[in-house]
């Protein structure tokens, strides 16, 4: 069995999140070093303020200021801070009930060691130097031995309120395509297209995916197909796709390689785009070092009859 293929896969996007009124007020408040909660009909104060009452589901809009000081309700000592977390040195995760609040906020506590942390300890917000209207405007909490801090008497109305955040998120994976696709890719590196035959229905799958999707059994018998094939259908792409360095217009085609029982997708080149047609006979054109054929070009053979490929569109 050939070596298992693996490659890094990063899933990354700067998500743009609109906030709605309550979250907008809370995060704008953090920018201004004011902590807001929201009042429920039964006069509980929820911090951080949520838009909908977790008990009654009623919409909540009644903002109220609470203090930037509070009490730890539970904690956990993080020996090994991880990417993206609030502090780079060991710290405590804490739930903090701020003075004036009935619920607790999750954040980090900067403390010299876990012996310095206990449930019930008093803490206060350490504000970030640069604040943009995000939960990270609270850099973390820090130990505090004073009385509840004074509130500023803020109404919750702000000039220039933050209405959205950009939440960049990156996750890293190691992708491995599995046995059948690895074998296919290994063969491709020798410019051979090798599919797999279903032991039950005898259809040849290219690329093979490890299972015959109609029979639900493993494919294993390797079958070399192509290199020539037939254009079964296509479209002419006139819109430039991001991240693709292909001049438009070009033809994106379904190609049934000779011996394969379903079509794969590829670009057609080597002829004017407006002369590509269903039934065109094509062959791959490779470029040095590429994993896949760069494109397919006409072979010059007569076109295939529709009846010979109409099941392979």
């Amino acid at each position: 069995m050939p070596e298992v293929l693996k490659a890094p896969l990063a899933v990354e996007f700067p998500f743009t999140r609109s906030l709605g009124p309550v979250q907008s007020a809370f995060l704008t408040g953090l920018r201004e070093r004011v902590v807001l909660g929201v009042k429920t009909v039964d006069s509980r104060t929820l911090v951080p303020p949520v838009e909908y009452d977790p008990v009654t589901a009623e919409e909540l809009r009644d903002l109220v200021e609470v203090a930037p000081t509070g009490t730890v309700t539970t904690w956990a000592w993080n020996h090994h801070p991880r990417r993206g977390q609030p502090l780079g040195t060991p710290f405590a995760w804490v739930l903090v009930r701020l003075d004036g609040a009935d619920t607790a906020l999750l954040h980090a506590l900067d403390a010299p060691g876990q012996d310095a942390v206990h449930t019930g300890m008093r803490v206060r917000v350490r504000w970030a130097e640069e604040r943009t209207g995000a939960i990270t405007d609270i850099a973390c909490f820090e130990p505090y031995d004073g009385e509840p801090a004074q509130r500023t008497g803020h109404t919750g109305e702000f000039e220039d309120a933050v209405t959205g955040i950009v939440a960049a998120a990156r996750l890293d994976y190691t992708y491995s395509p599995g046995r059948a696709q690895s074998a296919y890719l290994h063969a491709l590196s020798g410019r051979r297209t090798v599919g797999e035959r279903c032991p039950s229905c005898r259809k040849v799958y290219v690329p093979p995916r490890g299972a015959c999707p109609t029979c639900g059994v493993a494919t294993s018998e390797q079958v070399e197909v192509g290199p020539r094939g037939t254009v079964t259908t296509f479209c002419i792409v006139n819109i430039k796709a991001k991240n693709l360095d292909i001049e438009v217009p070009y033809v994106y085609a379904h190609i049934a390689l000779d011996g394969a029982d379903l079509a794969l997708h590829a670009r057609i080149g080597g002829m004017p785009y407006d002369q590509v047609r269903m039934g065109l006979r094509v062959e791959p054109v490779w470029t040095e070092g590429a994993r896949f054929p760069d494109h397919y070009r006409p072979t010059g053979e007569p076109d295939a009859e529709y009846d010979t490929y109409k099941e392979l569109l």
Binding site: Q23, R82, G84, Q85, W93, L106, H107, I135, T136, A167
Partner: peptide, 14 residues
């Protein structure tokens, strides 16, 4: 996604 995910608290921490 607004108040908690940006702090990346992992499942073991919670």
């Amino acid at each position: 996604p607004y108040y908690v995910a940006p702090l990346w608290p992992d499942s073991v921490a919670l």
